[in-house]
Nucleic acid binder design. Structure first.
Length: 644
RNA sequence: GCUGGCGUGGCUCAGGGGUAGAGCAGUCGAUUCGUAAUCGACAGAUCGAGGGUUCAAAUCCCUCCGCCAGCUCCA
């Protein structure tokens, strides 16, 4: 007999060789039905796994996070089997589960998947599910596995196999066989609710020099109702898409003849960005930053010093021809080399440090053509740039100050709950991408890790995501499509002070190198606007709303008083617009509501007579009559508090 | 840059070899109205650009530009 310690703390004795499924069934038939796999000593195991030793044990159900992954992975296998039935020549690459579902990459020879193909594949998958094929695990030796997959001509699997440390296992269902760690559901019939979502190209192992494969994204849930809810959520999310809403609300537009990745901010969008800029600049000033304004371009020699010419040239717009012109300029992709020149403009003392430079800085980056997206990835953008020069003693506190400023910004914008931190390190195996100084990389990363740990930040680590000149703390967020982006970054730079020969004279009268923190406080304004649109579905908090109140006279006779109110509120600094068109009040309200304007002020006979306003809130509807001074006070306070 | 989808009046879309259609928005007129669409008339597109096939191209083919999703990249 072996002894299993159950999640509720109880112990259960079972005979050696009892399967996970039998244990589940003993507990309850319903549990057995809902089970996806078992967990033995923190290791997920198949339901068919025969228990041989004592340990902590749990049954994992399909609707738990781990169980859902198992279900989705099994669905991915079913999809692969279906694809092989439809395209027998197809070669399988990888098919992992991801956050909200799964994908599988295929080499389909020359065939590219069209949307219609997804329906065909789904149909075949349903067939496989109906066939209820048992899914079986088999452990193989490396040689055995290699022989099996080379016989199948499964080149990609062979490549994966070569990197595998443990002995490989394979899973079979009917005539389908796949290299897989598992676990899996016991049979294909266990999958009740799945949907294929999209097909797109994807490079093998993410390497643009390698084969372009066909990737199919899909998802699966334990219950049909959960799948349907998920699909509805996806639809709802798409309605918040900044790229759609931002255009509908007249915040920005793009024009073919201007060019890709070059959105035009219209008065309303520009207004939001202006508010953000003023907010950031004022806050930075309070925190001891000095404001600079530096050129948008420079000679290539400057970028040769900074290393951009060697490491970032593809990302820059270059003016002139290196081979024929005496002077070649480049639009700036970053502000650092420019602010360094200001630092260098005179001899610095330790007494000058820390020195905090900020700039509302427009940058240009030559993104690849397939990459541009609304306001999120563009070729020209404006960022809350800044560089802090400090001594190593000051580094910790300055870094802390930067993180505090960032958190304050995110809190103020209501984005704090939507972001997370990422510690981005270099990739020692990719020397070309980075300034080559391994000791300095390792040292700086260690230093940064210590600072982060002292800050008590929860963060994830990412290898190969560092800037070419140093490690970063990135603040990450997801857009409505679930795609992750860096919105803010803080970097410790060990390299550029050296390259630019930045110095200060220390107490002991010797020349030392300052340490530089590159940072942004809310990142790029365009991207922030995009995030805000998606966060609030276009309905900005009053302080950020381009139009804060719309004044709606009921009939022409009320126009004079409406104009008076408009002036009154404008004088108080409120952004108001008067809609004196000859339309019915319901029409005007509907339009203001669709423009997501926070307040509608309705003016008719009653209001003219009592010198008041009928206030309607976008959120709460009719608020009834209010003295005009009371309303003014209310909205001014709401704006000052940056209420959400 | 790569894979796929797409591009028709300001917007959303229909038409898919025989010389453009709707709704909304716009303009004009009527209506003067109390909390999410008043009625009517008018105007507006050489169908992303260029080239080709054809008696005839928005429609078929090619190239380019742009938009969308994904991959590489990145704020």
């Amino acid at each position: 007999m072996i002894n299993l310690k159950m999640p509720d703390g109880s112990n259960r004795e079972v005979a050696e060789g009892t399967t996970v499924e039998q244990v589940a069934r003993e507990i309850s038939p319903r549990l057995a039905k809902a089970a996806a796999c078992g967990m033995l000593n923190q290791q997920l195991v198949d339901l068919s796994h025969e228990l041989q030793e004592d340990g902590e044990f749990a049954i994992i159900t399909q609707d738990s996070p781990e169980g859902l992954n198992v279900l989705r992975h099994t669905t991915a296998h079913i999809m692969a089997q279906a694809v092989l039935r439809l395209w027998p020549e197809a070669k399988l690459a990888i098919g992992p589960t991801i956050d909200q579902g799964f994908y599988y990459d295929f080499d389909l020879g020359g065939h590219s998947l069209a949307p219609e193909d997804l329906g065909k594949i789904e149909k075949e998958m349903s067939r496989i599910i109906k066939e209820n094929l048992p899914i079986q695990r088999k452990e193989l030796g490396s040689d055995e596995a290699r022989e099996l997959f080379s016989k199948m001509g499964a080149d990609y699997k062979l490549e994966l196999l070569a990197d595998l440390v443990d002995d490989p296992s394979v899973y079979t269902q009917g005539d389908f066989i796949d290299l897989c760690r598992g676990p899996h559901l016991p049979s294909t019939g266990k999958v009740k609710a799945f949907k294929l979502l999209s097909a797109a190209g994807a490079y093998w192992r993410g390497d643009s020099k390698r084969e372009m494969l066909q990737r199919i994204y899909g998802t699966a849930f334990a219950k049909k109702s959960q799948l349907e809810e998920h699909l509805v959520r996806l639809e709802e999310a798409k309605k918040r898409d900044h790229n759609k809403l931002g255009r509908e609300l007249g915040l920005f537009t793009t024009v073919d003849s201007v060019g890709q990745g070059l959105p035009l901010l219209m008065p309303k969008g520009a207004k939001v960005i202006q508010i953000l800029q003023r907010f950031v600049e004022d806050e930075e000033e309070k925190r001891g930053y000095l404001y600079t304004k530096t050129p948008l371009m420079a000679k290539k020699e400057l970028y040769e010093i900074s290393g951009h010419w060697q490491h970032y040239k593809d990302g820059m717009f270059i003016i002139g021809d290196e081979n024929t012109d005496d002077e070649v300029l480049a639009l700036r992709p970053m502000t650092c080399p420019f602010q360094f020149q200001i630092y260098k403009s005179k001899l610095r003392s330790y007494r000058d440090l820390p020195l905090r430079y900020a700039e509302t800085s427009t940058l240009f980056r030559n993104e690849s053509s397939g990459e541009m997206h609304g306001l999120i990835r563009v070729r020209q953008f404006t960022i809350s740039e800044g560089h802090l020069m400090c001594t190593s003693d000051q580094l910790d506190e300055e870094f802390r100050g930067v993180v505090d400023l960032i958190n304050y910004m995110m809190e103020s914008l209501g984005l704090k709950d939507d972001i997370w931190y990422r510690f981005s390190k270099w990739d020692p195996d990719n020397r070309e991408k980075y300034i080559d100084n391994p000791e300095a990389w390792e040292y700086t990363q260690k230093q940064m890790k210590q600072i982060l740990d002292n800050l008590d930040l929860e963060y994830e680590e990412a290898i190969g995501e560092a800037a070419f000149y140093g490690p970063k703390l990135d603040i990450q967020a997801r857009n409505v499509h679930g795609k992750e982006d860096t919105i803010i970054t803080v970097q410790i730079d060990f390299s550029l002070p050296e390259r630019f020969d930045l110095t200060y004279i220390d107490k002991d009268n010797t020349s030392k190198r300052p340490i530089i923190i590159h940072r942004t406080s809310i990142g790029c304004y365009e991207r922030t606007l995009a995030m805000l649109i998606e966060k609030y579905a276009g309905a900005f908090p009053t302080w950020l709303a381009p139009i804060q109140a719309k004044i709606l006279p009921i009939a022409q006779v009320h126009k004079d008083y409406a104009e008076q109110i408009t002036k009154f509120l404008k004088a108080a600094g409120v952004r108001v617009e008067l809609d004196s068109r000859n339309e019915k009040i319901g029409y005007k309200i509907r339009e203001a509501q669709m423009q997501k304007i926070p307040y509608m002020l309705i003016i008719g006979d009653n209001e003219v007579e009592s010198q008041s306003l009928a206030v309607r809130s976008r959120k709460e509807g009719d608020l009834g009559a209010m003295e005009k001074a009371d309303f003014m006070q209310r909205i001014v306070q709401e704006i000052a508090e940056r209420a959400r």
